[in-house]
Amino acid sequence: MRTSVLFDAPGPRTVRRHRLYSLVALVALLGVLAFVVKRFYDAGQFEGDKWEVFVTPDYVRVILVDGLLNTLKMAAVAIVGATVLGAALGVAKLSDHAVVRWPAWLVVEFFRAVPVLLLMVFTWYFIGINRDGGSFWAVVIALTLYNGSVLAEVLRAGVNAVPKGQGEAAYAIGMRKAQVMNIVLLPQAVKIMLPAIISQCIVALKDTALGQYVVAPGLTRIYKEIYLEFNNRVPTMIVIASLYIIVNLLLTALATWAQKRFVGEKKPLEVSLVGNLEGGRNA
């Protein structure tokens, strides 16, 4: 529904009234913004020396390499792992054999319902909290398990979204089950799934920030190090948040492009909720 359907084309009086509303809203918004900026300014957060660090080449390198790169690395490794795990679990969930289907269902439901942070803490202690790189792998493993389970559900929804006739036609020309899946259903499902997979990358990227609780490397650790050294919490927060937002907006643009290119006007995938008891069967 286009929003303009919700109200009439405004007449002259309404146009005047809307102008008044716009003005009031604009003034109120600018007022809030000015208040925020002023308070930060009064607290000295906008002074040059608090921001200088972000134009100092050495620190820029620290932020980009130790911070952003590590964060992206954790997210990338986790997404690759999650795709592999998701493919395996998703195919298992679509299996005709209950022995394969139900355990896969149990694993997927478990990891989808448990907070990533809880998983992270557990994996961290499991690896050993003093082991080198332990927290890096705790983040990666937790994100892999969680996102893998979500992607398994995405895969199932994607395969089910392929028109039924495709599978039937493949069986009719004498393909075996594995061939139907590999040659006919999965290639078409991947196209439908692509936007959902990219959205999951955004989720994984944002969740890397949780690594703070298990002292993992990445942007959130750099955040702490910088503000402890320069006592500039607000500028650092603005910079770190902007980095996350920029990368996420790029990914969102990619997902939108993939949706247009591969899926077209069809609806995006609808993935079932956690605790969906139908999920164990071939719906």
Binding site: F35, V36, R39, F40, A43, Q45, I202, K206, D207, T208, A209, L210, Q212, T220, Y223, Y227, R233, V234, M237, I240, A241, Y244, I245, N248, L249, T252
Partner: peptide
């Protein structure tokens, strides 16, 4: 803005930046 910010950063805002406001 909010959807693309990690929740941890939103929390950090209320723990560190909001008191200044």
């Amino acid at each position: 803005l909010v959807r693309n910010t990690p929740l941890v950063i939103v929390f950090a805002f209320f723990s560190f930046a909001a008191p200044t406001l």
